[in-house]
Nucleic acid binder design. Structure first.
Lengths: 154, 154
DNA sequence: ATGAAAGGTTGAGTCAGTGAAGTAACAATG
DNA sequence: CATTGTTACTTCACTGACTCAACCTTTCAT
């Protein structure tokens, strides 16, 4: 890929970039672990927690869930099955298009999702090491990175 | 935890912290996806790639791999089985302690791991949006977060 | 109407992950 | 030495995540 970049699009990644990537990898691992643990504490799997988190902004078609999570729709079927059987979500038919099934969080589901979000110690522990203005700095840098790369919007 | 902090250890997470956590979540998702894709492009799963990455710094006992990845040893058995059957790693007995099996990357394995590391577009795409000095800033902030929270060292 | 396309589900199959039980090697004792 | 306990790894059974192909139903274009 990119054998002939328009100009000089980082032919050889510089030292700093490498370091940042490695740090990011560690951070990702840490975050991931915390998330799984927090989910498990509510007898949810990571994937189930992710779906539930998506539903915080309202009901959503299966299809859209799959797209947002970048996976096959059939995968979502199983995850929602398990969430539904535990009373965390419901499937309701879309009146506009009866092919569509809208997945909505129940009160139980919404509560669990909120609690999980709150319980992410990740926020406190590592971020506590930074001063307020540093946190702002970090937010801006991350924000630039994300909007510059892939803007999921939504 | 932290029911009685020394002073005021963020009783209620402030707005900035929340934003950072959300950004981090997006970044983690992005990174994760890229990593899985890059691994899949070499017919490796994410877990297999992680193990292979660990072995870059030399052979390692099963046990230690499990600890580093925070999972059960029996899990590693399966992952290494698959890596071994494809010629990416070998199991060699430790001469000091014959209970221990040292997992070592083969040339093929090491090469694959290196290529994968190089191919992480993640480094270029989102980071390209930042100026060099901003990247340095980011590195320092992330570094502070990680050493302040859980220092895996190694 | 008829056929193509889209939303969702089912079933087969792989991999990740846990937990309990089992084997082999080490270590410390009497 | 023999005994006992611990450590490293494996095996087995089981659940969940995930993909892919095949399938049904509804919608839409003609």
């Amino acid at each position: 890929m990119d054998t002939k970049p328009t100009r000089v699009a980082t032919p050889q990644p510089d030292e700093i970039t490498r370091e940042v990537v490695d740090l990011m990898a560690n951070l990702v691992a840490l975050f991931h672990r915390e998330y799984e643990e927090a989910a498990a504490a509510r007898s949810l799997t990571g994937a189930q927690a992710k779906v539930l988190a998506l539903l915080r902004r309202g009901p959503m078609p299966m299809r859209q869930i799959a797209q947002t999570l970048s996976c096959e729709p059939s995968n979502i079927t199983g995850i929602v099955d398990r969430l539904e059987s535990r009373g965390f979500v419901t499937r309701q038919a879309d009146l506009q298009d009866r092919r569509v099934k809208l997945v909505a969080a129940t009160d139980t589901g919404a509560t669990a999702s909120e609690e999980l979000r709150e319980s992410l110690n990740f926020a406190r522990e590592p971020l506590a090491a930074l001063a307020p203005e540093e946190r702002t700095q970090l937010r801006d840098l991350l924000s630039r990175m994300l909007t510059g790369a892939a803007g999921p919007g939504a």
